[in-house]
């Protein structure tokens, strides 16, 4: 069996939309389960007394990373067919910074705002309206900033390629960093929790 199934023609575009809906249900379910339907719980990450955002995010990254690595090694997944967003380093660095500031001010990111508005949060509805407004403004100024947005292009590129090290070594390093991060995050939670 060769995957990704869609890329190998197991089903078509119409079916892919139903798949999208089904995957979305799983995504939303676990976001809410984790407590990410609550802006206070999400913002707590930045005040160090509840590091769930880091723990959930990095556990998910490690799980999926180990999964694609294993399936790639046994030959079930053609990793070259999995879409990589191209790297435009400077715009993405600035974008991350702006998004991080927006996260603390707004209390959500786009995905968690959907989970939150679905579970009754009025502020998440207002936040989503803010995304629409921001998208409109972005579209209007896009011609003026287009050159910057498309600058610093590196193409579709992974960390093992850039640093010229084996894929498995980077996977191993990410797992070590994540485990150390989980230990550190819990230590910080206890420390901050003990102070307040």
């Amino acid at each position: 069996m060769m995957t990704p199934l869609y890329k190998y023609g197991f089903f078509g575009d119409e079916m892919s939309l139903l798949v999208a809906f089904a995957l979305g249900i799983g995504f939303g379910f676990f976001l809410e389960r984790a407590g990410f339907g609550s802006a206070r719980k999400l913002a707590a990450q930045f005040y160090l007394y509840d590091m769930s955002v880091f723990k959930v995010m990095f556990t998910a990254i490690v799980t999926a990373m180990l999964g694609v690595t294993y399936l790639g090694w046994i030959g079930w997944l053609d990793l070259g067919q999995v879409y990589l967003v191209p790297t435009f380093l400077r715009p993405q660095i600035l974008g991350g910074l702006v998004l991080g500031v927006g996260f603390v001010i707004g209390g959500y990111c786009p995905g968690t705002s959907v989970a939150s508005l679905a579970t009754g949060r009025i502020d998440a509805v207002v936040y989503a309206l803010g995304i629409f407004a921001g998208t409109f403004v972005y579209a209007e100024v896009y011609p003026a900033i287009k050159d910057f947005v498309n600058s610093d292009s590196m193409g579709q590129v992974t960390l093992p390629e850039v640093f010229d090290v084996p894929w498995g070594l980077v996977v191993f390093a990410v797992v070590i960093i994540a485990v150390a991060g989980f230990w550190g995050a819990s230590a910080v939670e206890r420390w901050i929790g003990g102070k307040s």
Binding site: P86, G102, V126, Y138, V149
Partner: peptide
């Protein structure tokens, strides 16, 4: 919430 959403839209577009 509204201002954060607007910033988020800009950040997400810059970052793709």
């Amino acid at each position: 919430a509204f201002a954060g959403g607007m910033l988020m839209a800009f950040g997400a577009h810059l970052a793709r």
